[in-house]
Amino acid sequence: MFDLALLVQGLPLLLAGLWNTVWLSACGLALGFLIGIGVCSLKLSERGALRRLGGAYISVFRGIPLLIQLLFIYYLLPRLGLDVPAWVAAIAGLALCSGAYLAEILRGGLLTLPVGQVEAARLLGLSGRTTLTRIKLPQALRATLPALLNEVILLIKASSLISAVGLAELTRTAQNLAASSFLQLQFYLAAAVLYCVVNISLALLAGRLERRFAKGRA
């Protein structure tokens, strides 16, 4: 059931898979975060048309399973004449999907801000963008840190779905090793441990950030 020699032999492959999981998720989240800010701004807009556009985005990308989104993007892009590598489709899928969730988390954070803080910023002449990046977002991020961490961890785990577009990320690598060695438990356990290490590290990091942010609060 367990074979240490085979595990050591397979470890470089597992770590390469983990690396794919981490960087593809990181890129997807970074892009998704920008999308999230944009969609959230749409949803908070004074114009009804823009609000509906933001709402439609969220309905679509939150409503369709990530796996279907990934496959759709993977097969759609070549039809549009865009011959892109699989990793582009993977990052696009992760970003579009996490953008919808992050938009709603950020909106929740922004809605708790007292409107007077923004009025004070306006009267001092701060532009809309400066007010967003210097006054609103820093506070929204602090307020929603636990929810953001949840979303990050969920996305890292959901990134196992990008194996569907042919990328050997951690889950797919473990599957391959398990199939070729017949040591299923060993390699799935190894993958589980690696996922846990990443996600627990992130949780610890978020905990430190939270304590640092707490300083300013009475």
Partner: peptide, 13 residues
């Protein structure tokens, strides 16, 4: 123009 509010509206962060 400057303005001062009832609720101060300082930025707590």
């Amino acid at each position: 123009m400057g303005m001062v509010f009832q609720q101060f509206n300082l930025w707590p962060h």
